[in-house]
Computed example of a mutant assay.
Amino acid sequence: MRVYGVTGWKNTGKTGLVVRLVAHFAGQGLRVATVKHAHHATETDRPGTDSYRHREAGAAEVLVASPHRWALMAELAGAPEPPLSELLGRLSPADLVLIEGYKSEPHPKIETHRAAAGRDLLAPTSASVRAVASDTPLDGIGVPLFDLDDTAGIAAFIAAEVGL
C-alpha cells in the first residue's frame, strides 16, 4: 500500500493541501483513500438519526448503507485508539492513501507550515518529514521546500517518493 502523509501544527493548511492532492491524483484516474486523525471526539452522524440511536444504544459497530455511499462507525467504548497500521488494514485497495495528521508515525510525510501559526518546524527533528510546504521562504531546513500552494509540484514529489 502506498502511503504518504501531510502533517503539521493546527491552522497550517493540512486539510486544504490534502483536499487539493486528492483532487489532483483522482483527476489522474488514481483511486485515492484518506485517513484523517482528530484529537477530539468526532461525530459522524447527528443526534436523532437511526445510526446515532443504534450507537447510543450500545452497538459496537454501525454500518450505514445507501445507494450513494456506506460508512462504518466503530465505538471504542474506553478501549485505546487503534494504531494507524490497523486502521490502514481496514481500507479497500487504493493506489494511494493520504494521511492527515499522525505527526509521530513513521510513514513519509510532508509538513505544512504557515508563518502566522508561530510554531517551530517538525522537519529538523523528524526523519519521517521528507519535505516542507510553506507560505514563507525558509532557509537551512534540510529537506525540499515547496510553496504551500504548489499542488502540482508537491503531488509530483509525492508520486516520485511512493513510486507512482
Rank of each mutant, 00 (worst) to 15 (best):
118 G>T: 03
57 A>D: 14
74 A>D: 10
61 E>Q: 15
105 E>T: 07
76 L>W: 07
89 G>Y: 07
81 E>Y: 06
98 L>R: 04
57 A>S: 14
82 P>Y: 04
122 L>H: 04
63 L>Q: 08
61 E>M: 11
86 E>N: 05
106 P>M: 03
59 A>L: 13
127 A>M: 01
91 L>C: 04
108 P>V: 00
130 R>H: 09
84 L>Y: 00
95 D>T: 08
128 S>L: 01
85 S>Y: 03
99 I>G: 02
69 R>V: 03
97 V>W: 00
123 A>Q: 02
121 L>K: 03
89 G>I: 06
94 A>M: 05
55 R>V: 06
60 A>D: 12
128 S>W: 01
93 P>K: 04
55 R>K: 14
101 G>K: 06
71 A>T: 11
89 G>C: 08
92 S>H: 11
60 A>P: 07
63 L>V: 13
121 L>R: 03
72 L>P: 09
77 A>I: 07
130 R>M: 05
68 H>E: 13
76 L>M: 14
61 E>P: 09
95 D>G: 11
87 L>G: 03
68 H>W: 12
76 L>R: 15
75 E>P: 08
71 A>L: 13
103 K>F: 08
111 E>V: 00
58 G>A: 10
76 L>A: 11
92 S>E: 15
68 H>V: 03
55 R>G: 13
105 E>F: 04
115 A>V: 10
127 A>S: 12
81 E>V: 11
125 T>E: 13
57 A>G: 15
62 V>Y: 10
84 L>D: 08
110 I>T: 04
104 S>D: 13
120 D>R: 12
109 K>Y: 04
101 G>P: 14
75 E>C: 09
62 V>T: 14
59 A>R: 10
90 R>P: 13
60 A>T: 13
128 S>A: 15
130 R>P: 01
107 H>P: 01
92 S>Y: 08
66 S>W: 14
107 H>F: 15
84 L>P: 08
121 L>I: 05
118 G>P: 06
128 S>R: 09
70 W>Q: 12
124 P>G: 02
129 V>Y: 02
63 L>F: 06
69 R>Q: 14
70 W>F: 15
66 S>N: 10
111 E>A: 04
119 R>W: 03
89 G>W: 09
99 I>Y: 00
103 K>C: 04
74 A>L: 07
74 A>K: 13
67 P>F: 15
86 E>Y: 01
77 A>G: 13
115 A>F: 15
76 L>S: 12
130 R>L: 14
63 L>I: 12
79 A>C: 09
84 L>H: 01
128 S>Q: 12
69 R>T: 05
